[in-house]
Design a protein around this nucleic acid. Structure first.
Lengths: 126, 126
DNA sequence: TGCACATTTCCATTGTAATCAAACTATCGG
DNA sequence: CCGATAGTTTGATTACAATGGAAATGTGCA
């Protein structure tokens, strides 16, 4: 995956409605969900939803297929995979000796669970 | 990790300079790198760099510590972990039977490597 | 053909992010 | 105290993103 695609994917996800859409589709799996149902669940008017879906599609984070009058959207897990790979690539310069609990357990099996629990502070005084 | 923190982290990474900074720090590991060196490597003027570093710090994707006149930035691997967890949480509704190669191999050990290779198209006609 | 439904495109409005010169703060050596 | 160095904050400018009403497109059915 190249940088422009990564930026495009991250920008797509860095928006509340789109993040909700994407997670909904990730949790739904390959079966997917029609645009209308997504809009209903998230309480979004159709033009807004359509705008966000097209952003996600452009970023290749979702795919769409037509089924009669419905357009079914599904998460694109391959793009997701590539994105995570890019972010963690060559972590700690590949030096395993410094790549411990505090650092690169990102790439450990089982590393992708709620281990942490810290919440950032509110904006304002930084 | 809660949604506002996730949005904040994704927004922070969805910008070329900040993505470069973050990856530089991920690859450097816990040792970190002074602001000046980051700016030199990425060819960014100091106010611009400082702006981006503060965005990353607000998103808790990096931490900073002072060493004399230098301020050393390091990647915060815990936040990174939580972010990846949030994105892939409850993938395919937890139904392993549909959570196959095409879908949730995100969360398989060894899933975080360059498996794919598809490059998105250029913007424009979309 | 014509009507209903699902979704997208158009476009004006509004809000927010990125940039960098200049001014500021903090640390060190003297 | 001073001057030099390392970084941050301020503030003006510019560009891009989100929203949703109205109109358009595409599909199914009679």
């Amino acid at each position: 995956m190249q940088k422009p695609s990564v930026i495009s994917a991250l920008s797509a996800l860095a928006q509340e409605t789109r993040l909700d859409i994407f997670r909904l589709l990730v949790q739904r799996g390959p079966e997917g969900m029609p645009a209308g149902e997504i809009g209903e669940r998230l309480g979004q008017p159709s033009p807004t939803l359509s705008f966000h879906l097209s952003q996600l599609r452009f970023a290749k984070l979702v795919t769409s297929r037509r089924a009669g009058r419905l357009i079914i959207y599904s998460a694109n897990f391959k793009t997701m995979n590539s994105l995570l790979a890019y972010l963690t690539e060559n972590c700690c310069g590949g030096r395993r000796e410094i790549c411990t609990a505090d650092a690169c357990d990102i790439i450990e099996p089982g590393g992708l669970s709620e281990k942490v629990g810290r919440e950032p502070a509110k904006p304002g005084s930084g």
